[in-house]
Each structure stands twice: as C-alpha cells, then as structure tokens.
Nucleic acid binder design. Structure first.
Lengths: 247, 247
DNA sequence: CGTTCCCTTGACACCGATCAACTCTGGTGG
DNA sequence: CCACCAGAGTTGATCGGTGTCAAGGGAACG
C-alpha cells in the first residue's frame, strides 16, 4: 500500500503538522495514516457538517479548504475559522447533542472520516500522539482568540494583512507554501464574512496591499512579496501559533 | 470539614455548573471539593497569570470575575473572555511553553490552585467527571466562536445586549442570579475593550438599553427587566451554551 | 458565446471614534 | 466632618472609516 501519501502524492498533512511540535514514532505515523484511510470527496460550497447535526465520526481535512460559519438571525454570515489540510473539523464534538454551527467546503475537499472509537483507541495507547493532538487543539483555541483580537482592535487593512500572515504560517506548517506563495481559495465576500467587513471594502484594502507592494493576489493564489512589511502592517506576532514547540 | 462550601458559604461553583450537564457521584463531588482546597486571594486589577508565564498549576475561579486579555502593539487592549466562578483559567495550558495572553482579576477573586498531577489523577479514574470537564471546554469554545460572531456581524447595541444575555445564562448556571439580577462588575471601558468599541459609545448604548426599559444597571449590578426583549434585540440563541445537556 | 459569478470603482450616508467638558461617587487625609 | 481627589460615568460636537448603492468589466463554464 502506498502509505503516508494522499491521492495527490503528498504526505499526510496531520503528520506534517504534528511533527512541528512533537516527535512521532513510525508506529504513531502509521496509525494516523491507517486512521485516515476512509475518505470522502466533498464538492466546493457544500456543507461537510451542518448546524444541528450530531456527527458520529471525527472529520479530518486531508485536502482543500473549509470554513466554520454561523448565520445570524438577520441572514448575515460570519466565518469563525478556516480549516486547512491537517485540521480536525470536530475533534471533540461527539459528546455534544448537536453542532451549534456548520462547516462548508471552500474548495473541492478530501475529508477523512474517523470513527470515534478509532480516536479513542489511538489516544488510549499513545501518550506522545495524544499530547500532540492536545497541542493542536490549544493552537486552534489560540487562533480563535487572535481572531477576536483582530476583529475587536484592528482596522480593516490590518485585519486582512493579519489573516494573510496567519494563513502563511499555518500553510507552511503543513508544507503547502513555496516561495511565500500559497493557495488562498477565498472570494472577497468570504474574506469579508470572516473579517466583519463588506466585500467592497475588502476589495479596496486588497488594492492597497497590492499597491504598497506587500502582496500579489489572484487566481486563488497569494504571494507575499514583503513578509516583514506585512507583519509590521498587521501587528502580527506568531507566538500564539506555538510553532516553536519542538526545537 | 465544611465540605462543598466556599468561604462565603456557597456551594462549589464548578460542581453547580457541571451538574447542569452531567450526573456526578458524591465521590466526584468530594474529589472536586478536595482539589479546590488550596486557594489564593487576588486583588482586583492584578494579573492572575501574565503573558509569558508557564503556569505549573491549573487555576480555577471560585469567587469573583476575571478576564483574559491581550495587548496589541499600538497599546490597545482586547478582552477575549470573562471568567466567572466555576471557570478554569488554563485547563490545558501546561503543555505549552508560555501563555500567549494574560488573565487579570476584575474584582477581588478567590482562585483554586490545582496541581497538574491532581488533574491527571482526577480524570484518569473518573470517566463521567472527565466527560463533564470536556463538555465545559466545548462550551468555552462555543463562547469564543459566539464572540467572533458578535464582533463581526452585530452592531454596538446588539453586541452589548448579547453579552448581557450570555452572562445571564452563565451566571445562572452557577447559581449567581436572583430575580434576573446579577453582579456585572465591569466598567464601561472594560465592556468597550470586550466589544471592540470605545467607552463613550458603550455609555450611549447602555443609556439606550435603559431608556427602552430592557435593563437596569448600576453599582456593579445588572437587572434584566425584559429578558425576551433583550434576547430579541441581540439575536441571542442560547444553544451555543449547550445547557440542555442533562434533561 | 452567453450567462453567471466575482472583481472593481465611484459617490454618498452613517455608525462609532475622537476630543472636550462636566458630573458623580467613593475613598483619603487633614 | 469636611475638603479634596481620582476614577468612572455622562453628554455634546465633529471627524473619519466603513457600509450602502450603483454601474460596469473580466473570467470561467456550460
């Protein structure tokens, strides 16, 4: 069996990510690959999980992007997280009665369906792996808090720059950045629904970031031309991503 | 020993909260009381944990309010969570190198210091209690997401009304609400730093909520005069607090 | 090869920030 | 017991960032 490779030939992104923090044994790696075998393809713009569902599997992103979202009573949408390869959609949700939000695929996506029982077995016998999964959960929480800071205390220009800095680090952590270029499969409306803005204003801020020579964007791809400049512009401090774990 | 009572004679708020969701055995309850015995008093406006700390204990709020906060480079402060009796400050943080944010006491506070080892022992042998603690963690995450929704997609008036609805439910869950009145020990500036606003504008919105007969506020206390009206005004839907667990 | 998203740009409106006083309250010291 | 003071709350005037509305352009797709 062509282990440890996704259909596209890339290594399992969860392994790549966890090894930024922990040292996994060959056995741990095999267990992750094995658990990720049962996959499903989801079309772009379809729900992976809907509000109200009670998922009986854990969903792990293997390829593509997805977003957590919530619709408020007046019909507006707020995106509360981006999920990229290596991210769990609902690591813990099995103990709750129902999903209090939905998750939809931003691109065609490959998702592993891991039975809850498998997760239990995985973690019961592998303390190092369990610790690494915990670390990933804590990083996800740190990201949530940083989004609150972003929405509460930065202007539109800084918010968008900050998002780009964050996704750059996260994509790098799963080996999906080359020459400061990575896939950013978001419409301006989706960015707006993430940052508490309108698509029109996002457009203006992207133009400014482009005009100032900080980024190049187009065709679902983002190139960061001046990483230091972008970080300074946004007040980005990567410590909340806790990527320094291993070294 | 006068078990299960705080110095003020109230039951342990963590027990009160968890029993909203789970059925704990007498033994589980005793274990929580026992673990909460080593307490410390913190003055108002002092850090309980500072950014950069690596706490070697888990901190559990027993009395008073605290807030997670982050200072952005330009000096502005964003509060990312309120911690009330029964809330853990840092249930999981021991595996990280350093705190990426601080927590300060909003009022004089009583905090239990629980060694990490005690937490490990508690959870190792008590599946029902472990499950209940997990549930509490998931609720905390749901609260984080709802704050993102609040900041991103509601105006100032709705945001403040929503915060009041949330704290009403959470305070009720630990038995600290009487006749829709509860302690809300926040200055208008602190509310502003929570909601991404200025103190001046918070003041105007509070006046409006008062003028419309929805609330009465003053002297660190909030009375909700028209709960339905406040919920409608803010688009509040309590399902993210998953308080329906047990029944 | 037309239809449909998505992106782009301009003009104008409005929510919430900023700046500036003034009031009220509780605590402190003479 | 009162005078003072600092912090919090209150209110008005003005400014600016972002939303809204409107129109057109470009690229992907059937």
């Amino acid at each position: 069996m062509a282990t440890q490779r996704s259909p596209e030939g890339r290594p399992n992104p969860l392994i790549t990510k966890l090894e930024k923090y922990a040292t996994l044994s060959d056995d741990d790696r095999d267990a992750i690959v094995e658990a990720s075998r049962n996959t499903r393809e989801i079309d772009a713009n379809r729900d992976i999980i809907s509000e109200g569902d009670r998922p009986d599997h854990v969903h792990l992103m293997l390829d593509g992007w997805a977003a957590r979202y919530k619709i408020v009573p007046d019909g507006a949408r707020q995106i509360t997280a981006y999920l990229i390869p290596g991210d769990f959609c609902d690591l813990h949700v099995t103990i709750l009665k129902r999903m209090d939000h939905g998750i939809f695929a931003l691109t065609p996506a490959t998702v592993a369906y891991i039975p809850h029982e498998t997760m239990r077995r995985l973690t019961a016998s592998r303390p190092e792996l369990t610790r690494a999964l915990w670390w990933a959960t804590l990083v996800d929480e740190g990201v949530l808090r940083s989004w609150i800071v972003n929405l509460g205390r930065r202007d539109a220009y800084q918010r968008i720059a900050h998002l780009m800095c964050e996704m750059h680090v996260r994509m790098k952590n799963v080996g999906l950045v080359e020459d400061d270029t990575f896939s950013l499969p978001l419409t301006q409306e989706e960015i707006a629904d993430t940052m508490g803005l309108t698509a029109v204003h996002v457009n203006r801020m992207l133009r400014r970031l482009r005009d100032e020579g900080l980024i190049e964007i187009g065709g679902q791809k983002l190139t960061i031309l001046d990483l230091g400049g972008l970080q300074r512009a946004s007040g980005f401090d990567p410590s909340y991503l806790h990527a320094e774990g291993k070294t």
